[in-house]
């Protein structure tokens, strides 16, 4: 008998309330998982790269992994700052395969100009898609070749807008397998 998986969505720094609530709603509706908004935590100033004026996702993930979030199996952190991986100019979100913590940044989800002001429905939808995508990586799902699949890689906002909220039939199967046997490599 498997215990139902519970997801915690953590606001990091100063972000509009609506964003984590929309993400929680989409996790429940699209992936049928229990999700809650957790207590916010501060801006990760330790991860700021002063040359790039962006936040490095590596130290943020490492920091969140070390925190004891009780009562939840996986964590999705939501930030409004610009995040990056050292070789990339930016990322929309990041998660390690089979890890515990994933991140979503709202910073680049808005078309011109990028920034953390009021969120339109488009931005909220994109944030939810990135959160669901990263969450699936936490359940060991890899990028999918099928265009109409949540796990298809989206490198631009145009791609992201084309990406559906649902998984293709193969990824659905992998996801169900992952829930049945947590920790088992899938692909």
């Amino acid at each position: 008998m498997n215990t139902p998986q519970s997801i915690g969505v953590v606001p990091i720094g100063d972000i509009p309330d609506m964003a984590p609530r929309v993400i929680v709603a989409h996790i429940s509706a699209c992936l049928n998982l229990e999700a809650t908004v957790l207590k916010p935590i501060g801006t990760p100033s330790y991860a700021l790269d002063r040359q790039r004026l962006q936040f490095d996702v590596g130290p943020i993930l490492q920091n969140l992994e070390s925190k004891p979030f009780k009562g939840v199996d996986k964590i999705i952190g939501v930030l409004s700052v610009d995040i990056f991986l050292p070789v990339f100019t930016h990322v929309f979100g990041e998660a390690r395969q089979g890890g515990r913590v994933g991140l979503v940044s709202l910073f680049r989800l808005k078309k011109e100009p990028p920034g953390p002001d009021r969120l339109s429905p488009d931005v909220l939808q994109r944030a939810a898609k990135v959160a669901l995508h990263e969450l699936c990586h936490l359940y060991d799902l890899a990028h999918c070749e099928n265009n109409p699949c949540l796990m298809h890689f989206s490198g631009s906002l145009e791609d992201l807008d084309q990406t559906p909220f649902n998984l293709c039939r193969y990824c659905t199967r992998f996801f169900k397998d992952a829930l049945a046997l947590p920790g088992r490599p899938l692909l």
């Binding site: 998660a95 390690r96 890689f153």
Partner: peptide
């Protein structure tokens, strides 16, 4: 190592 690690995870996520 930071470059190796970043790309490693990115490619791993892509299968």
């Amino acid at each position: 190592s930071i470059v190796r690690e970043s790309l490693y995870h990115w490619f791993e996520r892509s299968g």
